[in-house]
Design a protein around this nucleic acid. Sequence first.
DNA 1: TTTTACTTGACAATTTGTACCAACTGCAAT
DNA 2: ATTGCAGTTGGTACAAATTGTCAAGTAAAA
Lengths: 154, 154
Amino acid sequence: MKNDLQRSYDLKRKELETVCRSNGLALTIQRRAIFDALASRTDHPTVDQVYEDISEKLKGVSRTTVYRVLETFVSIGVATKISNPESKARFDADTKRHHHLTCIACGKVLDLHDPTLDNLVPREGKIPDFDILDYSITFTGICSGCRKKPLNKH
Amino acid sequence: MKNDLQRSYDLKRKELETVCRSNGLALTIQRRAIFDALASRTDHPTVDQVYEDISEKLKGVSRTTVYRVLETFVSIGVATKISNPESKARFDADTKRHHHLTCIACGKVLDLHDPTLDNLVPREGKIPDFDILDYSITFTGICSGCRKKPLNKH
DNA sequence: TTTTACTTGACAATTTGTACCAACTGCAAT
DNA sequence: ATTGCAGTTGGTACAAATTGTCAAGTAAAA
């Protein structure tokens, strides 16, 4: 008999199959392995961590493939990318608490100043053992400029 | 007579001087130029964008210096770094709305599931022209592991 | 099976970020 | 104003992260 963890794992695997099908994507062993590796950990691994994980099982995978497949997963919605889309450092001279609107099409980052969002506190007991110093909300979506033009593929 | 923009600009410049002094840091022309470049734009520039901006005025600045100075600014609190500290991509198979706790000491990212934070909506009229599709809150702070050990100056 | 479009692997090239060290410069104390 | 020095910078080299290219391989429909 399967436990809950195992069951949800199967469910996710099934989901991958469904989503790939509906997007006309082949269900390759690389994609399955990368998905399994990603889904079996909750620590938001880097590309190389995923690569390490699957290299053990899949002899001869390419790092390039891991990069590609993870981006594919993001585009079909079975994974998310933590932090900004380009994963390159961006700086801001405004150190007052404020939030960001990130366009998923062009990568532009706009500021959002809204005092109603400046005093959020996670519900007591929900926080793992962690001292919170600050926070920032990243809203993702489409900016006005990109809404007008047709989506240019990547 | 100075307008408001000019005045707030001077204020920020003055602030840089004050903060540098109180941290025992020299007010070099490079730091001033980099700060001016950063403070005069609101689009969260990358290191290279700042480098481009100041190269015009300061002949012969080094890209290395821009990297260094921007990190210095973050450490003394006159600038912030958008996105994760390592600025390297991290992925997550959990696509349901949830939030993150990022440790500024070790870079670890923990999940925070709290339904009270899952229905935020920016106040009407506060949003620039932008279609919001999703959002995620990043709380920054110190994880339990790093709280115990003394800060290692890297 | 066979076909074909989609994928991958290998490697090159680029981009991004860090380490190191000799030369330089704010700035505090003459 | 001059001097001395700790703090900074520039440049090169290096390491790490990411992307581009294309021939060869493979999933999946016919």
